[in-house]
Each structure stands twice: as structure tokens, then as C-alpha cells.
Design a protein around this nucleic acid. Sequence first.
DNA 1: CACCCTCGAGTTCA
DNA 2: CTCGAGGGTG
Length: 763
Amino acid sequence: MARGRAAAPEPEQVPESTPPDLAAAKIQADELTTRILEARDAYYGRDTLIVDDAEYDGWMHRLEQLERFFPELQSQDSPTQTVGAARNTLFTPVRHAEPMLSLDNVFSRDEFLAWGAKVERDAGRRVDYLCELKIDGLAMNLRYENGVLVSAATRGDGITGEDVTNNVRLIRAIPQRLAVPAGGTPPPLVEVRGEVYFPVKAFEELNERQVAAGDRVFANPRNAASGSLRQKEEGKSPEALARMRDRIARLQLLVHGIGAWADPPAASQSGVYELLKSWGLPTSPYYKVVPTAEDAAAFIEYYGAHRSPAQGGPEHEIDGIVIKVDELALHSELGATSRAPRWAIAYKYPPEQVNTKLLDIVVSIGRTGRATPFAVMEPARVAGSTVRQATLHNQDQVKAKGVLIGDTVVLRKAGDVIPEVLGPVVELRDGSEREFVMPEFCPVCGTRLAPAKEGDIDLRCPNARACAAQVRGRVEHIGSRGALDIEGLGEVGAAALTSPEVPATPPLVTEAGLFDLTLDELMPIEVVVRDVETGLVRIGADGAPDRRAPFRKIVRPARKGQPAEYGPSEVAVKLIDELEKAKQKELWRFLVALSIRHVGPVAARALASYFGSLDAIRAASRDELAAVEGVGPIIADALLEWFEVDWHREIVERWAAAGVPFSVPGHPGPGHAAAAGGPLAGLTVVVTGAIEGFSREGALEAILKAGGKAASSVSKKTDYVAAGPGAGSKLTKAEELGLRILDAAEFAALLAGGPDAIGDAQA
DNA sequence: CACCCTCGAGTTCA
DNA sequence: CTCGAGGGTG
């Protein structure tokens, strides 16, 4: 990774040490919350200042940091979430008839089971648990008098909320009047608690419309729900008003509790739900009553893996599971603390979306010279891991996302793996943010960046031969699995060979010398150690940069008058040995290793099996090249152009001189594609997840060997999908298309005996 | 001219 | 593993 610019935050912004674990962070956050709330009560309620502003700001800042790093800690009633809302007096405050308590949180199975054990101890017996999905929406209190909806309010601080009755009346899912069965009378006063949310699908459609209309997009369904409900009708054009009403109407509600009703109307929480349902109020179909805490833990686990509709989950986002003691008599027996009831708990999943600070946008240069801007962020935990960087693809994407350096941005992991910046939280701007400007010159070698051809969005560094980032990238690529698969020639190895601290002239100026490397050349190499967190050079005890020599070790320590004696390290011996072995690898791997545009493993295999040698490919005309299946005029041109460059030909010559044959043994000559045949002839197979008994590469290799085609993505043309543990979106897609899905055993049978072996006449 | 496919790049984990 | 870009094929 090549960094263009050093980040320079103000010194007092340096984060305090992050607590080592979630439990410690939780204690700190609770402590801060209490202090902040006390200070705020004193200020707003009694008009007295009990702390000065600076200290108060310090608490808030620290709490924000904790919540950013452990998003699990963030709750809707955290001071960091409510402070803005509290100052905002757009809507009249209403007092709830009965306080809306929040729930205590647990973050692990063990914590949850400990809670269950305590409940049963306090109750003195076994209890039934009601498990339900914790909707990531907006907590609401609906007040019905004599069966008629009279007010709707947000949760607010739990005592007082904001009156959003007018907007809530537009929500189709909420009945204006309770449907009391014939003969029954509605209670004179009841408060119904529920959660308003935007269904995920409606949310996606909403954002598409917002984009089309040139409006701002919402970061997530919860923001969309809250934003929609807190809109005022005044000052809107008729069209805007219609859009706002239409948006509100799409909101959904699910109810999960009651307040302010003297006589418990049922014996259990589940009984309450049945009652609410009979009144015509929407209740969640996903709740379940289980006899043990262990069963509740299984419920938690199940929905952890089935959070989205695609996985068989609900139409709303969930941020956890709520577990309640089912029997109502126990509720009053167990009671509540000042903040939360003791008979219920919220299990929180690690969130898949977090806010964090965009510290800088830096440009990296890849092996092809492409300049890619990426976001450098304050480290944040998302979906279980810590993220500090994410790609922004190109300058157009930076514009399209609308992020400024210094913004608070929404970060998520696409497909639970790849960090992705969704966009800025515009409300949190303070004016100090600045726009990203694409640099004019390569941050690594200083050459002017330019599009490869006119109209291209991507800028590239044209200095392919000498730009350190590109040389290093190409060398790393040679060692990668899709090319020569050389152990020891990864990111670190490639950097050490191409841009070490010592010697001044690196052993590899270009990849041409790769196979001429000797142990004597490797041993002097010294690299400087960089801090993982900051990317800065680490300074040793003597004040000089911390240097390491990865390719040598001390054979005999220094003695009086005698300097230490050095020899090659195991890593160095291994690397030289691996390079020697690599010379005998298949031709197509060398084609990939040459970094010719558009020539990856697939095109390289086709070329190698058709022509049989690099000389034959080099001698071929544009038309002859394009005759190969999978190769068209563009790839043909890329090949011809590649061979026209002097230093490219030098790579081939020096590798050949070092003993690389550049040919397929026993190949009859150009024009003879390897005969297709075998049990999988004419079939396309896609592999996803881990297949028992095969490595990733091995499975693909086996498919090709059996005469089949190993495709990288699932489509209608796919005949079989071999899926194992860890399978992702490819499996989902295969299921959607109704394709034949194989487990490891079936896959092995297919390889050996073709479709017949697994009972298929033909896919 | 639609598709469908491959390439290339970026990230983080064990 | 995912995305965008753009090539190849029917």
C-alpha cells in the first residue's frame, strides 16, 4: 500500500487508550452515561451547572469514541443519540403515563445464560422465556382512550417523548380504533408500546427514488423511519407533501408491550400479544415461548445467522433479540431497577453498520498503475472485526458518495466481509470538512497521472517500469496463488526485494531479475518496521528507525575482537528453493505472471493450451490470437502491444536464460486445443465455500482435469454448484435459480463418474 | 444488442 | 467475497 500523505490530526485529538475488551468498555460507558445524564438533568431541570463545558464535552467525546469502537454499546437512549433530539424543539413534548424503560444489554451467550440463572434464582423456580426479535426501528408509545388512538409519541428520554400523532395517523399499519370483540369493552386507558420501522425492501426502493429525484439518501432504515416521522408539513410544496405522506404510509409497526393498565389482562406476555392481536394491532410472527434459557440461546443463535429476508429472516432490520420472562405475575415480583426491568434483557448482535470519522482520503497505486483513492478512518468495530480502511474506487465514486475529509461516515461490511463507506452523516458536519482532490502526480514516483485512454475515469501512473509501487505490485502478483504461487513472495517479501532500506539499489529493479536472485543478494536486505496502526516507521531504542533483516540470521555471535558471523535465514533458503521449483510450473502460470492486460488465469490457460509455447504466441498475428476461444481482438491487441515493449521482452529473455521453458511439454504445436473429454465434458461447475477433501485451488483444478469448466460466478449457464461450509452469495443465487447443489461427497462422485454417478441424466 | 463472464482491485481473518 | 468496468459470445 502506497500512501500519499501523512495524516496530521491535532495533538489533543489523539484518542485515549482504548479499553481492552467489551466488558471494560461497557463499565466505562455506563459510568459516563450516568455522569452526563446527571449533568444534563441539573442543567435543563434545575438550571445549574455542575461541570464546566470542557469537562462535559470530554465525557461526551469519550463516550462517542467508546460507542464507535464498540457499536454494541450504542443504544437509542444513549446521550450521544438523544442530545441532538432533546435540544430540537420542533415537536411538543408529551409525558408518558408510565415511563418507557430501556433494557439492559448482554453481548454474549455466557452473559445471557448468567442473566437467566439469576432470574430463576430470584424467582425460585424454572421459568418460561418469550423470545422476540429486537427491531432496529423507532420506539413508540401509542395511547388509546376508550379504544381510540389519542396520541402517539416517540420514546424520548423514557419519561417524556415527542408528540408525532399527526404523522403517525398516516401509517396504514396503525389502527385508529381498537377492534374490540363483540360484547367486550375497550379499556378506558391503555398505552401500547411498539417499534416503527421501514421494511428493508421499501427502504431500498425509497433510496432509489431519492436518488432519482436528486434528494439525499438515508443511511439506513432507522434513519429513514425517524426522519420521516419527524417531518413537518408546513412550508412544503404540494408535491413534497405528497411524497412525505406516501413515505410515512409505508412505515410498519409491530407492538410488543403495554403500559398504564391497572389490571393485567392476561397471565402471560404471550397472552398479552394474543390480546393485542385480537384488537387488530400488528404483532410479530417471530416470537416464541421456550422452556429453558438454553433454548432461548438457540433462538438467539438462529436469528444471528438469519438476519435478513434473504436468509429466511424478517422484513425489518434486527439489532438483537429480546428475551422476556413470560409469566406476568413474575414481572412485578422481579421488579425493575431505575433504568430497566429485571424480567427482560436485550441480546445485542455485533452491528453491521457503524459511524466513524473519515480522517483522510489517500491514493494508492496498484500493480497496473491505477490510482485508487481509499478512506482512512478512525478504527471502528463492524460485524466483529476492526476496520480502518476502505476503498473508494475512483474520484467519481468519492463524488457520488458525497464524503468530505473530516466527515462522520457510515461504514458497513458488504457481504459481511468487505468494508464499504456508504456515505456521510451530513447533520454532523461542523464546517471544518474539506473536499478530496485527486492528486495530479503519482504519490509514489511523482509521474503525472493520466487516463489510459480518453474518456476513462481511472487515472493511472504511466511509469510502469520504474514506479516502485507498480514494480512491487507486479512482483507480489507473480508470487500470488493465481500466478506462480511462490511461498515467501507475498506483500512483505515483494516489498523487501523491490524497495528495501538497505541496500540502496534493490536486488530487483524490475521483475526481470527474479530468477537470478542468489542468497548472497538476499542476505544484506534490511527493511524498516512500520506500526500497523499508524503506518509510521517504528523507532528503536537508540532513536533510529527499527530495522530488520528477514533474510539472514546470526550463525555465530560476536566474540571479543571477532564480529558476528551471518548465514541465510530459513526464509531466504525457502524463497530461493521455491523460485527454483517455480521454473517448472505450467506455461499458463507464467503468462499470468507477466501482468499482461486482461490476461488472467482463464485467458492464459486458453492461450497456453492452444499455442503450446510463448514463442508461438509471440509469433501469432492478431487474427490468429483472436481465434482462440475466450480471446477477442482486445486481448489480442494487448498481447501484441505487450511484446512491443523492450523491457517486457527483457523479462522473458532473462527468465528463459534462468531456465524457464515457457512451453507446454509434449504440445503438438499451435492450433491444437487440448482435446476436451472426461466425465465433465461440456459442464460448468461453480465452487463456493470449503469443500471437504479439496483445497480451493484443488477443487478448480479437479473440475478442469475432468474436462469441465470452472466458472467463478453463478449464472443460468451453470450446471452444478458445489457448496460447503462458509458458502456465501453464490449459494443464495444458485438456490434462486434452482440449480443442482452438491455437497462434498456428491462433488467427488461427479468428478469421478460424471452426472450419472449422482443420479442425474443430465443437468 | 443483450446477456454473461472475466479481470482487477481492495480488505481482513485465522 | 464483492463491485465496477469492460470484453466476448450467441
